[in-house]
Design a protein around this nucleic acid. Structure first.
Lengths: 220, 220
DNA sequence: TGCTTTTTGGATTGTCAACACCAAAACCGT
DNA sequence: ACGGTTTTGGTGTTGACAATCCAAAAAGCA
């Protein structure tokens, strides 16, 4: 109907951001993500975010329709940071040594954080699943992507013949992710990395027992 | 200092409840527990609890100092209901068949709930760990008790000689609880029991592979 | 330079939820 | 039946927090 020239945009016209605008928006998301990770979503007020990001309240509402929209942006950000950031590492899960390196990285990381916050993705999912259906779906997608990463590594292990015939890399990937999520939850609640160490070690032992190298006894 | 007769009570004098009072208090706790399980802790307002329990607002504050105190009572209630209620079942985890029965029970239970809510204990812990240190400690204790229950079953399996020498029931118990928690979290976020089924099956396969019956291939 | 759009500041509003208060009713042991 | 205690109802207060509004400053663009 309108004689509009230049790039026509879709129905949900995303107001184009200048570089400065994009930076401000990102500053808000990062501040919100950190606060929500450290204190939980519901304890994080927009006033907290406003202060941490050093913006005015109208800026938050200029870039996000409401708190839910900001939450979704935080989920996207954490998905990219955590899952995306791990994908190179996950590709190396095609050997037992690769799995061990991954384990060591995760344990060291939790130690560094003082066992606080748990998994950024899992914690968001746990807190939002029953309260925010859209957020739940976002987190579900993030977890599927994570699982895919693990699966690819394990399939590579199977393809190179290190994994025995009967073993199903897909099921192992699901179990590995579940065990990791649970272990991070226990670690966060108990403020102790022991559950994480034991759980990952046990899962790796299980996978090792399915390799052609054969089963090994549990390490002390 | 005071000349008090009758039963002297401790410093934190718990006002003795009459039968009616105890019933009202319990009604409040149960209503709060259900709401917090279905909607999350922070989405549950005391007004919601008031209505669900059919009490007046002053009654809630008569029995609980504040919302945190009610939350702690809910944790205690869920611990007793979930962990306490499972202890008989956990005692039967001394055989692979016992483990399978436990798995089937958990999967059926999740199906019944439409994969909503996840683990009552784990969800409370996840939501409260960073916001409420006292609640975190309560949940941590509940999880240790749960882990103990599993450990006892697996120790029985070891004692009766079904579990191989090298296997460590204690570490297996930690892993089993972590895997269960993570699987329930995935199930809750993805609204699908598949992760729960796969994870528990895989853990049971791992334990089975450590029995004198010897390892078996993964079941489809 | 002038025009439009984006970005920003800050004050304000309205809602909602935790919690306090007070007085009445029911209950309990004696 | 009586005095003290527990239980209950309804209402009021306060503070916090999400969300809105009105412009003004800055930035992009011709």
């Amino acid at each position: 109907m309108s004689t509009r020239r230049s790039k026509p945009r879709g129905s949900a016209a995303p107001p184009r951001l200048t570089r400065k605008g994009a930076e401000t928006r990102e500053r808000i998301v990062i501040a919100a993500a950190e606060l929500m990770f450290e204190e939980g979503v519901s304890s994080t007020t927009l006033e907290d975010v406003r202060e941490a990001a050093a913006v005015s309240s109208s800026q938050i509402y200029h870039y996000f329709a409401d708190k839910d929209a900001l939450i979704r942006a935080v989920i996207a950000y954490q998905t990219q940071r955590v899952v995306g950031g791990q994908e190179p590492l996950l590709a190396k899960l095609d050997t037992i040594d690769g799995l061990r390196a991954w384990r060591d990285f995760l344990v060291a990381h939790e130690r560094l954080l003082g066992c606080r916050g748990g998994c950024p993705i899992g914690s968001l999912g746990g807190e939002l699943a029953e309260a925010n259906p859209v957020a739940r779906a976002d987190v579900a997608a993030a977890l599927l992507r994570w699982e895919s990463g693990i699966r690819l590594g394990l399939f590579a292990m199977a393809g190179s013949g290190r994994l025995r015939e009967g073993a199903d890399p897909s099921r192992l990937a699901t179990t590995t992710l579940a065990a990791l999520q649970g272990a991070l939850l226990l670690t966060k609640i108990q403020r102790d990395t022991t559950p994480l160490e034991i759980t990952l070690d046990t899962i790796i032992e299980h996978i090792a027992s399915l390799t052609n190298g054969g089963p090994r006894t549990q390490t002390e």
